[in-house]
């Protein structure tokens, strides 16, 4: 770890000023990702601003019927919060599918969506990585790329975003509230993370002087019909190979609104509005789910070790949609499967 100085911020204003006055300064809260990256010399801040004393821990109702998640509320406190569990069970399930109990006790909501990729080559300073060192190349392209992206990647980077929470937030169309020297602004979740393009060192659209203050959940929580399906190499405490956050609004057998966000497949939570529109007004049938899954994976591109994710992704989408429909307590659910085997 390189040398750095440490201060505790007592107000949001001083935190923002302090950060802007030191070019290599970083905010630290849970520290679960930053501390680790500092140990392996991927991150090297010369100044750490501890923001855990700031009053950004609350989870409160919004006037529009939604819920505001404080940026410094821990992942555990968020997932187990009565209102989150009741109105946004998709988010609670996604959070609890990630990391371990210890890490969820430390990690904050703001930090969760700012966490960096777990691409092996990003972590290994002996290899080329455009995200870590712009212009150095991408060792993953021709390397061991089993965990890497199949959608929205570029010739400069095929890393994936590791967060489970972010996948649910994408499906829920959350908004990220930030503040900086230019004042406050709200970033729609779909615009928060970015695709790598030719600048993979930029994970998101947060500016260097900005800090996340809260995340707003819209009123619609898909509590009746949702699923978070996470497929990984071991049953717990592993990153997703493919994950699917699905939320449906149903009128009887008819889907009136569909949200599908994918994790483990791209540089950002992946959504495809065309595929979601394909399901709107349609019956919840395996055939329709198959069409949506095919649309989502239409432009998917596999590399040497991760082509399996394309078929896995299609099946995961279908299974998540099926699970979302079946949450209904209606005994005469019109979704029938002919086999009890996993999809």
């Amino acid at each position: 770890m390189n040398s750095f100085t440490y201060t505790r911020a007592t107000t949001l204003e001083t935190a923002v000023q302090d950060k802007a006055s030191a070019e290599l300064a970083k905010f630290i809260a849970g520290g679960t990702n930053l501390t680790d990256l500092m140990k392996v010399n991927v991150e090297g801040p010369n100044h750490l601003i501890d923001i855990r004393q700031l009053a950004l821990k609350d989870i409160t109702d919004n006037a529009d019927g939604g819920l505001r998640l404080g940026a410094l509320a821990t992942n555990a406190d968020t997932a187990y919060h009565e209102q989150v569990a009741k109105r946004y069970p998709l988010l609670a399930k996604a959070i609890l599918a990630g990391a371990s109990a210890q890490l969820r006790n430390m990690a904050t909501n703001g930090g969760n969506i700012l966490q960096r990729t777990r691409c092996y080559y990003f972590y290994d300073t002996a290899t080329a990585c455009n995200k870590r060192e712009p212009g150095s190349g991408c060792a993953a392209l021709s390397g061991f790329n089993r965990i890497h992206a199949i959608l929205g990647a570029s010739e400069h980077c095929i890393a994936v975003h590791p967060s489970d929470m972010a996948i649910a937030l994408a499906a829920l169309e959350a908004n990220v509230n930030v503040t900086g020297q230019q004042g406050n602004r709200t970033i729609p979740f779909s615009d928060f993370h970015r695709l790598p393009g030719d600048a993979p060192h930029l994970d998101n659209t947060l500016q260097p002087d900005e800090i996340i203050t809260s995340i707003d959940l819209p009123a619609k929580g898909f509590a009746q019909h949702h699923a978070y399906l996470k497929l990984r190499d071991r049953e717990s405490y592993a990153f997703a190979l493919v994950s699917v956050a699905a939320g449906l609004e149903m009128d009887g057998d008819t889907i009136t609104e569909a949200r599908i966000a994918l994790g483990g497949v791209a540089h950002k939570p992946w959504r495809n509005r065309e595929a979601e529109d394909l399901l709107t007004g349609k019956s919840a049938t395996e055939e329709n789910f198959k069409l949506a899954a095919a649309e989502i994976m239409r432009e998917a591109k596999g590399y040497e070790h991760n082509s399996f994710k394309i078929e896995l992704g299609k099946r995961a989408i279908m299974r998540a949609l099926e699970q979302a429909v079946k949450m209904s307590n209606k005994p005469d659910s019109h979704f029938h499967r002919t086999s009890t085997e996993p999809v």
């Binding site: 440490y6 520290g31 679960t32 501390t35 750490l48 501890d50 555990a76 210890q102 890490l103 430390m106």
Partner: peptide, 12 residues
């Protein structure tokens, strides 16, 4: 609350 002591700084 249980945490990983390797991922937090003593000063924090």
């Amino acid at each position: 609350k249980r945490i990983n002591s390797c991922l937090t700084l003593a000063i924090m």
